[in-house]
Design a protein around this nucleic acid. Structure first.
Lengths: 337, 337
DNA sequence: TTTAACGATGTAATGGATTACAGTAATCAA
DNA sequence: TTGATTACTGTAATCCATTACATCGTTAAA
């Protein structure tokens, strides 16, 4: 293997000079530089990053913990993170935690072993205390979800406000029997969306029914959304609107309604959350709360990089704008109570 | 930072002994081992992987080149690869090439710099000659797609045979006006599927019409599938069946048909390829050729690992079984010619 | 003229783990 | 009893790039 020593020998200089040229630290006489460059070319030398990283004590790897990569919502976040870091010469390692604490712990151990320089978490299943121990020692950013007990760097939308606006919209259309399909997972966004749902209905003096609150699987699966929607559509009185905390669930609800012979939005309004591709794949196009996924990823990456670069003060909380997108799956109820 | 030296000092032994214990190379007296283990615990020592990898001259990273991670087809392949390698203590870095040769080259350079120990390619845009140079030097496996000019390790299904069976099935149903939505990309699978389509129709003495052969975008986008299907559905005579080389395209075709007022499968049969989730999201469930994605990933990973482990002889070609899954989007044509 | 500063380069230490090789004591075979 | 073998441990070289410090002309400032 060609090393910096070989290049130095070939060019008749010391390794220090080669290194200086390579890293653009310190001055090198143009003529010398030319000789070195020629030697590098001739020997087709490539610096050994194992040695460099070891010496610099950095891995140039960042870790991304995501509960489930197959979820399209994450794909754009990943793209955003990837674009920032690959420009900076970092590799991103995506770690599928499946929401299992052991898996998450295992991944975070990589930081201790100098396997990664920092981490972006899409979800956190550890206790605040255990989580804080990592956060205190290593660059860390929370994306989408975050631990409300800790003052750590995070990037997300305002889930409470976004839900409020969605429910306001439904009430504004005339809906009173508004159900929700939440999730059995433990994410903050899930809590906030449910709380905003409850608070907003209360604000309008709309009575709440437990039967109108369903919990789909932790990963928002299409199947569980469909199942829960069928439960809702067979309760009496039937809700006239269903607020789903993810588009996949909303899709399931639309299909459930169709299978039961209901029309969307004439018989029942369905709205989703996230705005992933399949909201506009078939009719009715789904009314949803759009999240700026790519931007969430980009901001997270930038925030992590400032931490890795040892900037002492960095923004802790980035809240990006959401947007209610009205499409075809929502309409006023046919019969007003 | 705690180093192996600190542990050695604490335990009153040499670094060699600690290392031997850590790596289970050579014998260590049980009592000594206990002392060392205690020291490791006490100092909460974690080996520095930067140093280890440098010394061992391995990165413990493998590279995955995929043209487009947002495509759900790849998600399961990635899961299969990930499961194998994370058990082996490797990290997988996913590189989105977007089918751009520069991006691919850039990624492969990482091998030269000892940034990764091997690579799995989902698609290759380089010339056989350039590609061979990397393959000769580094562990490499082609997954799904491969360069037919080179004898390199690859894992895939038999695309030609699979397509043949699909067309046989359509002809068996009574279809004669069979169209295809192929892709403008340059993948081998695309060529093979198209060729099998052509050959099989010829075998049945069914005349071919250029109007029945459409090419969607390189990434099989839903939109382009829908657009091309509309073109097919407005040609005269209209095809009674459309063979799509991906499920996303098939989905687009179904929606296109519905928007034009045609029923699937009564008015037009649509079949897809891959068997990703959305084939069963709504009715009609899509008839498709299933690929064992997870297994493709797993086998690729195992094949790569044997190469990394310097096994001199390893299997070059793994062909996994496909399966035609008949669902709701296919039926005999209403009117036979 | 002398001193200081600068430009350009080289020497050698450094990072942390692995491992070839050497060494010691104890045990075994003859 | 002696030589060989085994079990266990230590010393020090090694991997390759970076970089603190030293060196040596040359030029600018005093």
């Amino acid at each position: 293997m060609t090393t910096i020593k070989d290049v130095a020998q070939e060019a008749g200089v010391s390794v220090a000079t080669v290194s200086r040229l390579l890293n653009d630290t310190g001055v090198v006489h143009p003529e010398t530089a030319a000789r070195v460059t020629a030697a590098i070319q001739k020997l087709s030398y490539e610096p050994n990053l194992l040695a460099r990283n070891f010496r610099r004590s950095e891995s140039r790897v960042i870790l991304i913990l995501s509960p489930n990569i197959t979820n399209p919502y994450y794909a754009h976040i990943l793209a955003g993170i990837g674009d920032v870091f690959s420009n900076l010469g970092y590799s991103a390692v995506i770690f599928n935690t499946s929401d299992a604490p052991e898996r998450e712990r295992e991944a975070l151990e990589m930081l201790k072993r100098h396997r990664a320089d920092g981490v972006i978490l899409m979800a956190n299943t550890l206790s605040s205390q255990e989580f804080k121990e990592y956060a205190d020692q290593f660059p860390l950013v929370q994306c989408s979800e975050y631990d409300p007990n800790l003052q750590l760097a995070r990037v997300s939308i305002d889930n409470y406000l976004a839900t409020q606006e969605a429910i306001d919209y439904l009430v504004g259309l005339g809906h009173r029997r508004i159900a929700t399909i939440s999730s059995e997972n433990n994410y903050l966004s899930t809590h906030l969306r449910k709380q905003a749902y409850l608070d907003t209905l209360q604000r309008y003096n709309i009575s709440l029914s437990d039967e109108y609150i369903k919990h789909a699987s932790y990963d928002y699966s299409f199947k569980s959304g469909k199942m829960k929607a069928k439960e809702l559509l067979t309760t009496d009185p039937m809700p006239t609107a269903i607020f789903c905390i993810s588009d996949t669930l909303a899709l399931g609800a639309v299909i459930a309604a169709q299978e039961l012979g209901y029309r969307v939005p004439e018989d029942v309004t369905v709205i989703g959350f996230d705005d992933v591709e399949h909201t506009t794949m078939f009719h009715p196009f789904i009314t949803t709360v759009a999240q700026p996924c790519y931007e969430l990823g980009r901001h997270s990456a930038e925030l992590l990089f400032t931490q890795i670069s040892h900037a002492s003060d960095y923004t802790r909380e980035v809240v990006l704008p959401h947007q209610l997108i009205i499409r075809e799956s929502s309409a006023p109820p046919l019969i007003l109570d």
